[in-house]
């Protein structure tokens, strides 16, 4: 039996492969297919409904004398080449990058991303390090810190909108204590509004980062701690010089997860400010939605969403290469 030729690779585990077909098709058609579709149509002047890049009439038409076409008896077209009215090249992208609302969105996102990344990584790690000290009621604390993550962004946004609202929230409470001139209304101030959103975002996301970090910390061998204790190395030094470098894969994965989450931030902003006051808390995802549906300008919306995809790819591709590319060498 063992002498018989091995069945070809293609037919090994046939039932498993068969079972995977629906998922493969879903991934190909929905993820890859729709992404390509969006990309292609971002070069058209599509409004509410998609307009194809070129129509077949233009490919197979025959030149006809003007008088025949003018009286309408022949429904034919001149040869106009492959490029027809719908294709506009980079025009949608030109318009996008000269639109002040889009530029504000990008600035806001950069600000939000910078602060949210640093803050949730640092606080998440510190919280996890505290949790790792064999404290009592660890389960309880872990649940409390992780709870905000279980809440939808819309609810988080609404709750923080109320907390930060000057008429019912923090400002009113502090004034009630006797500080009559206390002012705290970040969501009403165009210069501070992104920080108001940041508070809610960090409040929601940090617990999850803590959980990831804690899992990473638990993966560190007890012997390393014992060794460093014998050598008399202070605890903070062990964390920085030994533990954090050992946790590199956890950090990289966390970084990618947070960044991808930040790029698509939408519901939090919608619930808190809806992009206001004015346009001061707009984010790219709101621009995409607004142009796809409210402005009925599909081409512009798809151009913006392609730029968002590009942002995600810039983060994901290097990560994939670092994490999975070098595997054979190890």
């Amino acid at each position: 039996m063992e002498k018989a030729s091995r069945p070809s690779q293609l037919f090994r585990n046939l039932s498993a492969k068969f079972a995977a077909i629906p998922m493969v098709l879903t991934a190909l058609v929905i993820f890859v297919g729709c992404t390509v579709w969006s990309f292609v149509y971002s070069f058209t002047r599509s409004k509410l409904l998609p307009k194809p890049l070129f129509t077949t009439e233009d490919l197979f038409s025959i030149p006809m004398p003007t008088w025949l076409i003018k009286d309408g008896s022949f429904d034919v077209y001149y040869i106009t080449g492959f490029v027809t009215k719908s294709f506009v090249g980079m025009a949608q992208y030109d318009r996008l990058w000269s639109n002040s609302r889009w530029l504000t969105s990008i600035e806001n996102l950069a600000l939000y991303a910078g602060f949210a990344l640093v803050f949730s990584l640092v606080v998440g790690f510190i919280l996890a390090a505290f949790m790792d000290q064999k404290i009592r009621f660890e389960n309880t604390f872990r649940t409390i810190y992780l709870y905000p993550y279980a809440m939808s962004a819309i609810i988080t946004g609404l709750v923080w909108q109320w907390i930060l609202n000057p008429t019912f929230g923090i400002e009113k409470i502090v004034r009630g204590w006797g500080f009559e001139n206390f002012e705290f209304a970040p969501l009403q101030n165009p210069d501070l509004v992104m920080f108001g959103i940041l508070i809610a975002g960090v409040w929601q996301g940090t617990g999850f980062i803590m959980a990831l970090m804690l899992a990473g910390l638990r993966g560190i061998d007890e012997d390393i701690w014992k060794a460093s204790r014998i050598d008399g190395i202070p605890m903070w030094k062990t964390y920085i010089k030994v533990v954090i470098p050992m946790m590199r894969p956890v950090f990289v994965t966390t970084l990618v997860l947070i960044t991808a989450g930040i790029l698509k931030v939408y519901d939090l902003v919608v619930a808190q400010t809806n992009g206001g006051p004015g346009l001061s808390s707009q984010v790219p995802a709101m621009y995409v939605y607004s142009y796809l549906f409210t402005a009925q300008n599909l081409g512009q919306g798809l151009a913006a969403s392609t730029m968002m995809l590009l942002g995600v790819l810039i983060i994901l591709i290097p990560w994939t290469i670092i994490e999975f590319g070098g595997k054979e060498k190890r």
Binding site: S100, R101, G278, L279, S290, T294, A295
Partner: peptide, 19 residues
């Protein structure tokens, strides 16, 4: 005015009003 133009005008005016 098409919804596209309207959206752009609305964006412009609300930005002006608040900034």
């Amino acid at each position: 005015l098409s919804p596209d133009t309207n959206t752009q005008l609305e964006d412009l005016m609300v930005e002006f009003w608040n900034d």
